[in-house]
Amino acid sequence: MTTEQTEALIGMTVVVAILVLLALPSALGVIRDRRIDRQIREAQEAREERGSRTAREDQKSSSRSTVPSTATWYAEGRRSKKLVSS
Rank of each mutant, 00 (worst) to 15 (best):
R41Y: 14
V15R: 08
E57Y: 10
R38F: 05
V30W: 06
L19W: 15
S61R: 13
V30T: 06
T66S: 02
I36M: 11
S80Q: 11
V15K: 07
G51C: 03
G11M: 01
E48H: 11
S26F: 15
V84C: 03
E76G: 08
V67F: 13
E45D: 06
A23D: 09
R50I: 09
R35Y: 05
A75D: 09
A46N: 12
M12H: 15
E45K: 12
E57K: 13
R56W: 10
S80V: 06
R79T: 03
K82T: 01
E76W: 13
S61F: 05
R32T: 05
A71H: 00
Y74A: 08
A43M: 08
L22K: 14
A17D: 02
I18G: 00
Q59K: 06
R35K: 10
E57L: 14
K82Q: 02
I40G: 03
V20E: 06
T13I: 07
D37Y: 12
T3S: 10
E4C: 00
A17L: 05
V30R: 07
K60I: 11
V84D: 07
Q44Y: 10
R79I: 04
D58H: 07
A71M: 01
L19H: 13
A43N: 04
T66L: 02
E7D: 08
V15C: 03
A27T: 12
R78Y: 11
A8G: 00
L19S: 14
Q5D: 12
R41C: 12
R47P: 01
L19G: 14
A27S: 12
R50Q: 08
A27E: 07
R47V: 14
E48P: 03
A8K: 04
I40K: 04
E45N: 07
G11D: 01
I31N: 14
R56K: 10
Q59C: 03
Q59L: 05
P25H: 02
E76R: 14
A71Y: 00
T70I: 12
S86F: 07
T13P: 02
M12T: 15
E76C: 06
W73A: 13
R32K: 09
T70P: 02
S26T: 15
S80Y: 06
V67S: 11
E4W: 01
T66P: 00
Q44P: 00
S86R: 12
